[in-house]
Amino acid sequence: MSKDYRQPTEIFEPQKSQRQLRTIEDAATLSTSGRLITYNDQLKDSLKHGKIFTELFDSLIETNDPSELLSAAQKLVSYHLDTSFITFPQQYSRSDFYLIFLNRLLALHDKERVILQSSDRFHELYHEFPGINTLGYFIFQLETTAQKGAYYTEKNTGETLFYLSFDKHVLRFNSRALTELLLVKYTDDVTKETLRGFEEYLLDIGKFLKEDFGFDVDFTLLDPSNSAVYQVADSNLPRTILDKLFVETAQGGRILERGVNGEAVLKLDDDIVVKLFSQNVNEGASNGWSIKVSDPLHKESWFDVLLEYSFLRTWYLNNLESLEIKSDSLYFN
């Protein structure tokens, strides 16, 4: 563990820099008392700057108003506490603010399942999820481009589960990392209940960001809605992949049926129905192959089905190259 993900302290800010430049230029022409006054003014400004920070921090850790919480977090993740006159040796990183925000948001809804831990040794905060804490922990990794967002990252594997941007009001889940981590890495060591719990935790984040602040959320394979359409990577899905599913479904004691429109239909327990179909929208333009999961309670996602049914999981993972559910390519490649 290291402080890799901590942004180095930045003291260069556009508005400030103007004044600092001027101060340096002017310094030569100023009298001694003038210099003292200027110095004192700068200190006052810097102190005020620090004071504002503490107010935002107060808000982040104490407010019960969701919009105040978001506003505080949004400001804090781009706040430069240090100035050329005052530096603060003990600081939380931007990743930490994202983590605190998530815990506070979930706590406001009584859904705080993830534990916010602080490592004294590495001076950082991290997320620990009960049941998978021996396998890894989560932090935010700041986006390197100017887009101002951060990736929720499992530190040991580097898998980025989702992208969050306060400025753009965007939350994007990453199907590849979710699959790799939850359906491959964790399957042997973590109970299904825990994985379900972790999934709920992720869904809650999306749900509250959407409901409280109107975030644009892409859940990808976690989306439990019946109207969710999961697009698979290969738009020309080879026929053999469906044949394999047909054979493996039979071995699982079920039938892969043919729907009225030629789609493949798989009926599972509790009236859960999985459909695979090629969307040939008008003008012959094909949107490629997609998967839909429906159930009477709008509770089940493709992820849930994969978690529950091992023959489907095996099939999905064996043909992942073709079947992987697409994530927003703007944030994940």
Binding site: L242, D243, L245, F246, I255, L256, E257, R258, A264
Partner: peptide
């Protein structure tokens, strides 16, 4: 007046 039939309603019947 002419009908053909498939065996079953399963995939690739």
């Amino acid at each position: 007046g002419l009908f053909q039939f498939y065996f079953g309603n399963w995939w690739d019947r």
